[in-house]
Design a binder for these strands. Structure first.
Length: 233
RNA sequence: UCGUCUGGUA
């Protein structure tokens, strides 16, 4: 079973979901690893409905899901952009009463945000005891995607007060909000922060900075950042 | 270490 799981994993990494499914179908015995692998494969391949169908099939076969399985199936709901199915899965997870895992909570926050329900996302987020940088990034990114830029900046301030260090992902999100709201001073502070931590070589950061300065009417700085991005080392 | 969470610009 270990060998077959590894084979499934290999096929999925090669993008051959059909071969992976073939191996999965022919297995005599499947464990939670096998199911998670194939579900993650369908999720990545853009077939979230198939992942959800298999999940309920697994449930009927009395295979016990674990936290990793939950994160995977939540991602399928996210990709399906289905708030309804997401809530159904969330309810199921609560019913299972597994010890709570930050990865699961973070995936739920991201799912609710991408399904358009910032209220549900905030509700889950507030319940996370040990918020990691990814917890903060997930909720802030959700606000930005929903155009709630003021809220994004407010959460960013809370994040700094809570003792979490913003990373490159955080900075990209918050810079976008500054660009949209035309808050130039805050954006420049972010730029200073970026330079202090040496994040300016990150290509997401670079392109977001260029965008920010362009929107702020500082084309001179934008082009300087742009040129710096293309300098060798 | 057989499987999981967040960021591309208009």
């Amino acid at each position: 079973i270990f060998v077959e799981n590894t084979l499934i994993n290999t096929y999925i990494r090669c993008g051959s979901i059909a071969d992976a499914a073939q191996v999965f179908e022919n297995m005599n015995e499947r464990n939670v690893f096998s199911w998670t692998l194939i579900l993650a494969g369908y999720e990545r391949y853009g077939k979230p409905e198939e992942a959800l169908r298999l999940f309920w099939q697994m449930e009927q076969q009395k295979v016990t899901a674990d936290d990793v399985m939950f994160v995977t199936i939540i991602k399928a709901c996210t990709r399906a952009a289905s708030l309804e199915q997401g809530k159904e899965i969330h309810g199921y997870i609560v019913k299972c009463g597994l010890p709570s895992n930050t990865f699961v909570f973070n995936a739920l926050v991201d799912m609710y945000a991408k399904c358009g329900s910032m209220l549900d996302a905030m509700h889950v987020f507030e319940r996370i005891d040990e918020k990691t940088v990814i917890s903060w990034n997930s909720i802030i990114s959700g606000c930005v995607q929903m155009g709630q830029h003021t809220q994004a900046l407010s959460l960013y301030q809370q994040m700094k007060c809570s003792g979490s260090e913003p990373d490159e992902v955080t900075l990209v999100c918050v810079l976008k909000s500054c660009g949209s709201l035309q808050i130039v001073e805050e954006g420049i502070l972010l730029h200073v922060y970026i330079l202090r931590f040496g994040y300016e070589t990150n290509r997401y950061i670079g392109s977001t900075l260029v965008d920010f300065y362009s929107k702020s009417g500082r084309l001179d700085i934008a082009s300087r950042v742009f040129s710096a991005m293309h300098e060798p080392d």
